[in-house]
Write a protein that binds this DNA or RNA. Structure first.
Lengths: 197, 197
DNA sequence: GTCTATACGCCGATAGAC
DNA sequence: GTCTATCGGCGTATAGAC
């Protein structure tokens, strides 16, 4: 909805979003002032930001939308390239581990922030296009006999509970290696938790 | 450390803590003003709070300490009453599911708030007495052959990833039954994720 | 121990010059 | 499109009467 007019996206707009993402991930939304964001964007005053975004919330909204959007696209691609739900889930795990190493701020935003604390109107993650599709993948896995016959939401909770919690520990530094180092082992455990044996 | 002088704990002090817990869990720390807490405590003005706590942060600090303290005591009790690590973990799962149904605010505080966003000095959960003991339980389970031989921190991530994520979904309403309804099934999955077969 | 009154600062937001 | 100046408000916190 906001993206249409973003065809004219300025570079500074992106810089603002990037700076905000980093700061939100690092200090949280409420500990980040517009002044902070301005400084981190190479702008000198907070006022200039209002030329790009109506208000602070809109920055977070745009950020959230962008992340969900590109996530959704990635999920589509993964679904297109793989047919079995085990392969599709594997692709998603692959993506999440890569993101954790390459764009930790994004994963921090998704996994560690309580988004509806500062975006009360935002859809919960589970009602989001990308995540609806993920549940669908699980549902398919069940009907095709790859995944055991339990409530798909529960299967989702189990599978991504393992994945997300592991990534969270990487992000906080509780686990000291790169996410990649834990990937294959973690995938196996997570998959076995829901796979039909 | 704060508890020593809390022998003289007033009733209103407890009411403030209780109100704060509810509000923090519901709206988050930054969306909760001292005025909110005062109102919810049966007090009329925020100023009165300063007679019980030096400042807002101290309320959250006391809350966090209390929760961790009683958690630690519960873990001790569970360890005392059970010898095998499978039994001990089962006891802890039992406790967490009960807490989710009986004191959701407590679990919300523990699982859904980014505590060090408003308590920058606070120890991360994993460095906390209760959680150190839990990792110890896992370590014992490994050396006694009940749990498969992997990094105890990883085992912890897997096991509680499943548990916590399931409880999180109960707390947000994404899963619509009481936590109890999912307990036995979830325990089995979580345990199998780390148990030696 | 709770109230009234008040101070203070910070931040979000607007107006308008350049 | 970025700046300066400035406003208003809210929330924390203090001082002091009762």
């Amino acid at each position: 909805m906001d993206q249409e007019k973003n065809i004219t996206k300025t570079e500074t707009q992106d810089e603002i979003l990037l700076a905000a993402l980093k700061l939100f991930a690092e200090k949280g939304y409420f500990n980040t002032s517009l002044t902070d964001i301005a400084e981190a964007s190479g702008i000198k005053t907070a006022s200039a930001i209002y030329h790009h975004f109506k208000h602070k919330q809109m920055i977070a909204t745009a950020l959230y939308a962008n992340i969900l959007d590109s996530l959704n696209i990635s999920v589509d691609e993964i679904r297109r390239k793989n047919s079995k739900s085990s392969e599709q889930l594997h692709g998603i795990v692959d993506l999440l581990f890569k993101l954790t190493d390459d764009a930790p701020e994004v994963m921090q935003f998704l996994l560690m922030l309580k988004i509806n604390e500062f975006l009360p109107e935002a859809k919960p993650l589970l009602d989001t296009a990308a995540f609806i599709k993920i549940v669908k993948i699980i549902r398919n896995g069940i009907s095709e006999g790859e995944i055991r016959n339990i409530d798909p939401l529960l299967a989702n909770a189990y599978f991504f509970g393992i994945i997300h919690n592991t990534l969270r520990m990487v992000l906080t530094g509780a686990l000291d290696k790169k996410a990649e180092a834990y990937q294959s082992q973690t995938w196996l455990i997570a998959w076995n938790a829901i796979a039909k044996k």
